[in-house]
């Protein structure tokens, strides 16, 4: 999956934020705050081909049931698409 925007992931006192660099204009919220799972997914998105791969990875890393993992992945990707990041 390809990330369209140039964003850098940074960690500030336990929070993970994405900061736009290059031509991307920071929107009114300026940056994106990721939760722990979001930060985990963010790192593996570029190498993943499908949504299922992300779900599997989430299942291995966190103690969640399949249904929740699928939902979390879908919601996260939807949000990235909404913001034209994916």
């Amino acid at each position: 999956m390809k990330i369209k925007k140039e964003l850098i992931k940074r960690e500030i006192a336990g929070d993970t934020i994405l900061i736009p660099i290059g031509k991307t204009i920071a929107d009114s919220s300026g940056l994106f705050l990721l939760n722990e799972q979001g930060a985990f997914l963010w790192d593996i998105i570029p190498a993943a081909e499908t949504e299922e791969e992300l779900t599997e990875a989430l299942l291995t890393e966190y103690e969640v049931d399949r249904e929740t993992a699928e939902k979390d992945v879908r919601e996260f990707l939807d949000r990235l698409r909404e913001m034209s990041i994916l």
Binding site: I12, A13, D15, I17, S28, S29, G30, L31, L33
Partner: peptide
């Protein structure tokens, strides 16, 4: 200012960042 900025500054104040 945007809310995330307020949030980060509050946090920064707690940890001296």
């Amino acid at each position: 200012e945007p809310i995330f900025s307020t949030y980060l500054h509050e946090k920064g104040a707690r940890f001296g960042i």
